[in-house]
Computed example of a mutant assay.
Amino acid sequence: MNTDAPLHDGPLAGLKVLELGQLIAGPFAGKTLADFGATVIKVEPPGSGDPLRQWRMLHEGESVWWQVQSRNKQSITLDLREPADRALARRLAAESDVLIENFRPGLMEEWGLGYDTLAADNPGLIMLRISGYGQTGPYRDLPGFAVVAEAMGGLRHLMGEPGRPPVRAGVSLGDTLAALHGVIGVLLALQARQRTGRGQVVDVALYESVFNCMESLLPEYSAFGAVREPAGSALPGIAPSNAYRCADGQVVIGGNGDSIFKRLMSAIGREDLGQDPGLAGNAGRAARADELDAAITAWTVQRPVDEVLRLLQAVRVPVGRIYTARDIAEDPHYRARGMIESITTARGLALEVPGVVPKLSDTPGRLRSLAPALGEHNAAVLDALNRPPAESGKT
């Protein structure tokens, strides 16, 4: 890593990342590192490229999602099924700080690109490996997508209404949670390398990343034999916290803090509940959650969303509308925080995309370049390997 890189290029300026993954988990990790200044070289198969280029809504044949997932990256094309291109990938890994892959466990070894082989060339290499079930264990060879990881991790069972089939969130949470855990692992491994000089493998499983976010699910089962069940929009054991009908829509209200609860009850004209000693703590409120939800709904259902927001925000009760994409695009706070950025793609499409998080005060991440065309950086990257561009992978 080049520690002389200017800080204004981001805190990870000088870090070289080789991204071999595709679709969501591996590339989301690469995107996050790239947003903060890392040089990310994305390897794509010739001809088709990363399948994400064709996912969901397309503009002139290319996914608009691609502009988010692959911004700030360089694209080269290598066919990793071919020995000559695998040799090129090995040479690139020898010059990299981090390698990201999210293939099935064992495939990198079959290609001669396992960690032991790559570390022999580059002992400081950090290899982020993201898979459904991890690199070890009885399930390692099973195919694992986010949908399966969310189910195995315990999340899917809790999503939906009691007594009805579970639903999914509508986005690939298993992939993005795994990617974020992967980024944490890479940063930890970089810190360790500062002391030891050695790289290591960061082994991230999709299901474990989901499970890590499941709060008290396992301890409650271990201590009490309690199996948490779906509860719709409520948060079992914490009250009042739910979605509530209004005259023209819905809001979510978090009135579960002791002092917040009293302010909420005063705002809805139920001082009797706010002053009830049995409701002073969460345990008492949780036992009477249905009663509290009914009292709040009786108040919200008579008022439009905007009025509910105004009255409860005035007394500092956490409340919010349930946002759609339109609400996000029109919200002034998103724009004030730089969470909506405007770009124009290479095809001339004016597009708004998510900004960079987290927010760093001195070395913030930023959008430095648009998502690349397939193989756009073949010549530049392969020249750096002292190899004639004409011998690069075909686009």
Rank of each mutant, 00 (worst) to 15 (best):
M1Y: 11
T3G: 09
T3R: 11
G14F: 05
V17R: 08
G26D: 09
T32Y: 11
D35K: 03
G37A: 11
K42M: 02
D50Q: 06
L52P: 03
G61M: 04
E62G: 03
E62W: 00
E62A: 03
S63H: 01
V64Q: 02
S70F: 12
E82F: 02
L99T: 08
I100V: 12
I100M: 05
E101R: 02
R104H: 07
R104S: 12
P105V: 06
L107F: 04
M108C: 12
W111T: 04
W111R: 09
T117D: 07
A120H: 02
D121K: 00
R129A: 13
G137K: 04
D141W: 01
L142F: 09
V147D: 10
A151S: 10
R156V: 14
R156F: 11
G160E: 05
E161V: 07
P162S: 10
G163D: 10
P166D: 12
D175P: 12
A178P: 05
V186W: 08
L187R: 02
G197Q: 10
V202E: 14
V204H: 07
E208Q: 15
E208G: 13
S209G: 13
E215A: 14
L218S: 13
L218W: 11
F224V: 08
F224P: 09
F224R: 15
N242D: 14
R245P: 04
R245K: 09
G249E: 05
V251S: 00
V252C: 12
G255P: 02
F261C: 01
G269H: 03
R270K: 03
E271P: 12
G278T: 03
R285V: 03
E291N: 02
D293N: 15
P304K: 00
L312H: 06
A314E: 11
P318D: 09
V319A: 10
T324V: 07
R326L: 15
A350P: 12
K359C: 06
D362Y: 12
R366K: 14
L367E: 11
R368F: 08
L370I: 05
N378C: 04
V381F: 07
L382I: 15
D383N: 14
P389A: 14
P389Y: 10
P389S: 09
S392A: 15
